[in-house]
Write a protein that binds this DNA or RNA. Structure first.
Length: 594
RNA sequence: GGACCGGUAGCUCAGCUGGAUAGAGCAGCUGCCUUCUAAGCAGCAGGCCAUUGGUUCGAAUCCAAUCCGGUUCACCA
């Protein structure tokens, strides 16, 4: 149990014993004591003065005395300022905590809780390469899954690949028209970029054709529908749906190029999936559910044969679930896929990591599933994240301001290399070791940069700021880890691990470190419950910062006494382990040296 | 127009289930490498927490209104 939980528990007990009044632990507010006051944790008493009809001073004294007397292993003293009861935790408590956990490889993690959570993330389109927004999605999804796993959940990572539709046909027709049989192999271009280039070519040609038609006197609106290349793409989509062999063959070939490209990127950034769904295999799902919904009266049919659901009573709109030609729409497929996923995995929770422009969509999805009485419904959770913008505004593919994922990754790694070379600290590394280090640092910087802000908020990606490896960054934390490891290597023998630590007086920075370390599992819990890796990122940064101050202020290897040395080695050991574990949950590696 | 999200230091962000004098990082300015890695540490400076009103012992935090920015409300996905 965490210190804060213990304080709440014993405070509730104190109020019960002293005043014979029952309060729940949730009623008790415990904060970290502000640095300018004496104490470690503070119980806020204002809430009880009315209920117990005592002045804050009396209340604080009664509770404080009870706590210190009855829980002498936990509290050493208290003071009251206004309505704040400041409690000082005994040094022995922190020392025991440290002794009990410094060698605990599962520190901060929880036992399996038997609950199953699906996390769907990444979900690319196969007509163009990944960009910065996809990276935020991938890092978030992967990290959220890892954090939930650390909290005891059984995790299934999934991805739905949007591998069919008009956008794919656009790349396909452009390839037919302009490629002269070129392939990624023949050109040496990474497959996803290769296909993406033809998607761009399609749009160029399309715009040209529309302009030409407009010049010839056709209204723009008509011209946009009449352009030959667009008609070709639409025809191709129909042929694909009809299963025309040449079209299906080309589709398979071009998608295989894209997958080969994606695989390289996924491998580089560490994204992986337990189950991949392809839209080409799921887009017909959900049609049967429309029939069910009609029977149950959840849906209704309009005169033209299209099927709708009326969500106006829920504050939403009327929503189409099946076109008049009997084909299903996006939401219908999603309902079908949700059912499929549930049948396959019987999940307790199904998290969709999808951008916040689809908030409305997922609201509708959940409502419909609930109204259909599907068991999969209540577990649906949309982990929405904000758009990644550039300092100049949104990324726009038409203006060529989209930041390509592969380019970004390569640039970060190259900057890592440049900075490492400037500092010249690892000249004895082999080429492979250097390569690994650059990857670790470059990707660490990028991942941390994208994960350190609240997922729900849109964020500005400032390239200059992102390549800064100082301060609130991944490399700073990695550096802190490397410094600790350097010390631990110096103490080569393991005797210190057996040695007990004395409960001598803790210096302020020693206590701050211990206090911060103790909060690790609480933070993992919070990050999991709120689906928010940024909570963890901020925590690790603060931990590294406290350690850095401690490191500068106090020597470990040349400590004042052997006992202090043992204590500090264990503090260092637990700090390095916590940084490593915490960063792992963000998908970031930490080096032994840098 | 309806719904939803946001507005905190020059910039990027924490803090938002109400608590003490609102915090980081970057940028700016001062110091600190014969001592465990200076990708570091210590310090200075920087704020009408968008505005107005309300709720109360107490509001950046809750409520209402207003202003500004964004998303969304497709027989697109």
């Amino acid at each position: 149990m965490s210190v804060v939980e213990q304080i709440k528990q014993v405070t509730a007990e104190a109020i019960k014993q002293v005043y014979n009044v029952e309060v729940t632990e949730n009623d008790i507010q415990v904060n970290a004591t502000k640095p300018e006051f004496e104490g470690d944790y503070t119980v806020v008493l204002f809430g009880f003065i009315k209920q117990l009809k005592k002045s804050p001073e009396v209340l604080g004294n009664d509770i404080g005395n009870y706590l210190v007397q009855q829980n002498s292993t936990l509290f050493t003293s208290f003071n009251i300022i206004k309505g704040f009861l400041n409690l000082t935790i005994t040094d022995a408590y922190w020392v025991n905590f440290l002794q009990a956990n410094y060698g605990n490889t599962l520190f901060g993690k929880k036992e399996p809780n038997g609950q199953k959570v699906m996390v769907e993330y990444s979900s690319p389109n196969t007509n163009k390469p990944l960009h910065l927004g996809h990276l935020r999605n991938n890092f978030l999804g992967w990290s959220t899954a890892a954090i939930l796993k650390a909290n005891g959940y059984d995790i299934i990572k999934t991805c739905i690949v949007n591998d069919r539709g008009i956008h794919i046909c656009k790349s396909m027709i452009a390839w037919q028209l302009f490629a002269n049989g070129a392939t990624p192999e023949s050109t040496g271009i990474k497959g996803d970029h290769f296909v993406g280039d033809y998607y761009v070519k399609f749009n160029d040609e399309y715009n040209k054709q529309v302009a030409q038609l407009v010049d010839n006197g056709m209204p723009r609106e008509i011209a946009e529908k009449e352009a030959a290349i667009m008609k070709g793409a639409q025809e191709m989509l129909l042929e694909w749906e009809a299963g025309k062999p040449e079209v299906v063959e080309l589709w398979k070939t071009m998608n295989s190029w894209v997958y080969a490209g994606f695989d390289i990127t996924y491998k580089k950034i560490g994204s992986d999936f337990d189950r991949v769904y392809y839209e080409s295999e799921t887009y017909l799902l959900g049609k049967g559910l429309v029939e069910d919904g009609l029977k149950k009266g959840v849906f209704y049919k309009k005169d033209d044969g299209s099927v709708w659901i009326d969500l106006t009573a829920d504050g939403l709109d009327e929503k189409l679930v099946m076109r008049r030609d009997g084909t299903s729409v996006y939401i219908t497929q999603d309902i079908g896929l949700a059912v499929n996923k549930y049948e396959e995995y019987k999940y307790d929770q199904s998290i969709y990591v999808v951008g916040d422009e689809q908030i409305y969509h997922f609201k509708v999805l959940k409502f419909i599933c609930q109204k259909l009485g599907l068991p999969s419904a209540d577990g649906i959770y949309h982990l929405s994240y904000g758009m990644v913008e550039l300092p100049g505004g949104k990324m726009k593919s038409r203006e060529g301001t989209v930041v390509d994922a592969d380019d970004m990754i390569a640039e970060m790694i190259s900057i890592a290399q440049q900075k490492t070379e400037e500092l010249g600290k690892v000249k004895d590394f082999t080429a492979d070791e250097l390569n690994e280090l650059y990857n670790t640092l470059g990707l660490g910087a990028l991942k941390f940069f994208l994960l350190r802000v609240d997922p729900k908020k849109r964020m500005v990606f400032n390239p200059e700021e992102s390549i800064d490896f100082h301060g609130f960054t991944g490399p700073f934390i990695q550096y802190t880890h490397a410094r600790i490891k350097s010390i631990l290597r110096k103490q080569a023998d393991n005797t210190w691990k057996e040695a007990g630590v004395s409960s001598s007086h803790l210096l302020p920075l020693e206590k701050m470190l211990a206090t911060q370390l103790e909060q690790f599992s609480t933070i993992i819990n919070e990050a999991a419950n709120e689906h928010d890796p940024s909570k963890l990122a901020i925590y690790i940064f603060n931990l590294a910062k406290i350690f850095s101050s401690f490191y500068t202020e106090h020597s470990i290897m040349s400590a004042e006494s052997e006992e202090k040395k043992m204590l500090r080695l264990k503090l260092a050991q637990l700090t390095s382990h916590t940084i490593k574990t915490g960063m792992e949950l963000l998908g970031i590696q930490v080096p032994e040296r840098m």
